[in-house]
Design a protein around this nucleic acid. Structure first.
Lengths: 333, 333
DNA sequence: TTGTACGCGTTATCAT
DNA sequence: ATGATAACGCGTACAA
């Protein structure tokens, strides 16, 4: 390339990296040729010898769920400051795609991995899938967000979802609600389990009824929220407040209620989870729990960065959730 | 690696790629060792000789805007089928970050580039920024989505935003509206210009008033929609319907109206643009124009794929938008 | 069918 | 200060 055109060989490298002193005159000469040819060093070759790509793989289940966008938005900002680039992989919650991307990222020699969703919060995760991650972890640092690898040590960052749910239920109780339901989520998922457990315990602790028919699971979508709320509304004896697994389900639930002419929050209070951008855009605005998604991504990346540099890092980081009270549970007076 | 453990050297390569016949027995032996060591070929070294990374860089302005997520969702699905992987880069609408990522992607030797937002739909784009893209285009295929490089030939896929706006205005006219406003967007942006032009012409063609004080620009955010609608509501003589630059602005506008006790659509009809996931989640549900975001991404990738294989591809592909009528302009009876 | 040797574009280690 | 040269891990003619 520029080598022939000019005079030297590896001196170019020194100019590009400032790794050794170079005479001003020759530097200028080289710089000129670089400019002229718009020379771009090949990062592949560079990484091949450096053993460092500056890439961090990010696995997440669903780009249509704003929560994840917000998390990796935070991670991306942090990454740029540290000189890393994110390699985003949408697994569409498909374990098979998850494995594919996992391999892809390893082949591509990413410096580290951030893992969200999928197998790391599956209730029953096949050993093979766990082992796959473990094997990778031997070579490449991994940080799990809101999940775990049962039976294996790993670095993780999570929101205290138990506390988050507790905040919500207590909020309802303070408002005088005694009939509280739970919508959305799936028992195949540990986060649903954790939230449901918190839901149950908090009700018990307050001598309130925990009724199976007020618990309507399903998935994490708007459609699910809509259907489940329709079922609730069709009941003789209904709750006066419902906790939803996330903002999407809550949005669906609100739609169903309003469509049936049920006023929110006057006749039925509804709360979400995640404090997605959506929750303040809705009307009524959604009461929810913030996972501080930005911070979640940021600290995951901070920890990963330490791991990559072989520094010690905290195994488990738990972030406190915040209750965000809005209109869907309480009208401002 | 496996070479020493076994017997051969490059035979491993033939096994991995099936590029030449290998005796069954030796293949088995090699496969066994690959399994045992969980051997992963190094994609960096491989790409270095192949001159093909299988990566497609995607520049987009804002991961918090669902529209873009939907577009690259479509692109990703198409990419996977063709054996490509997307390298997503959030430019945060910052020209500087745009340039940074552009260089990064080139150094990383992406096979192609998809460009959305930023400079490619800036009204006044510095020559240097355009030239930067042109220079890259000489080496790497690029497809532009909803944008252009003024004065230079380039491959692009776009929605007919002019027609989209026309559909909206005509919809209002058919509903009997004669006082129509326009909210959000920025004149620094060509898409705003195009939509505004369509807005103006359609009004004129129907002998309806085009009033400057009913045109309230700003940006593309919920907050903007909220503020602009507040301004509109404070006016003596207000429109009975407003076209918004996108769904986000429309959502803000609806919130402002409802907050002021103005009923939507009875007292004020509001329409968005993009048919984001949000639009059907809102209530009232949002009348909007679908850009077929999924298809936009899919065809951009299809064209890019042809370009990468040195095949001829259509320079300009225009997708027809679809009017989606929902509650924010018309209550079902 | 399989092994040898060179090249891909860098960086790093020696010399000079 | 700068020029050779050996890696890095892989594909691939070419030879065997």
């Amino acid at each position: 390339m520029a080598r022939e055109a000019n005079v030297s060989v590896a001196t170019v490298s020194r100019v590009l990296n400032g790794t050794a002193p170079v005479r001003a005159s020759t530097r200028q000469k080289i710089m000129a040729i670089i400019e002229k040819h718009k020379f771009q060093p090949n990062a592949l070759a560079r990484s091949l010898v450096n053993k460092r790509t500056g890439m961090i793989g990010v696995l997440f289940p669903d780009s249509s769920n704003m929560f994840f966008s917000e998390v990796f938005g935070g991670a991306e900002r942090a990454a740029l400051k540290l000189g890393y680039t994110l390699f985003l992989c949408n697994t569409f919650s498909d374990p098979h795609k998850e494995s594919e991307y996992l391999h892809l990222l390893c082949e591509r020699q990413v410096d580290g991995l951030i893992f969200m969703g999928g197998r790391i919060n599956a209730r029953q995760c096949q050993d093979a899938l766990v082992q796959e991650v473990i094997d990778i972890q031997k070579k490449t640092p991994i940080v799990l967000i809101n999940g775990t690898l049962p039976g294996h040590p790993c670095h993780r960052v999570k929101t205290d979802e138990f506390m988050g749910t507790q905040l919500l239920v207590r909020h309802f109780i303070e408002l005088g609600h005694e009939r509280i339901g739970f919508l959305g989520g799936s028992l195949a998922t540990t986060t649903t389990l954790e939230k449901l457990q918190a839901f149950k315990e908090t009700l018990h602790a307050n001598q309130l009824p925990y009724r199976q028919d007020w618990i309507r699971l399903g998935d994490f979508s708007i459609a699910c929220g809509y259907q489940r709320m329709e079922q609730i509304l069709a009941m003789q004896s209904r709750p006066t407040a419902v906790v939803c697994i996330n903002d999407y389900v809550a949005i669906g639930a609100i739609k169903a209620a309003l469509t049936r002419g049920v006023r929110v929050p006057e006749e039925l209070a509804i709360a979400g989870f995640d404090d997605t951008q959506l929750s303040s855009a809705m009307n009524p605005e959604l009461t929810t729990v913030s996972q501080n998604s930005d911070e979640l991504g940021r600290t995951a990346l901070a920890i990963l960065s330490r791991l990559i540099q072989k520094e010690k890092a905290q195994q488990l980081t738990v972030l406190a959730p915040r209750l965000i009270v809005r209109q869907s549970t309480q009208r401002e007076s």
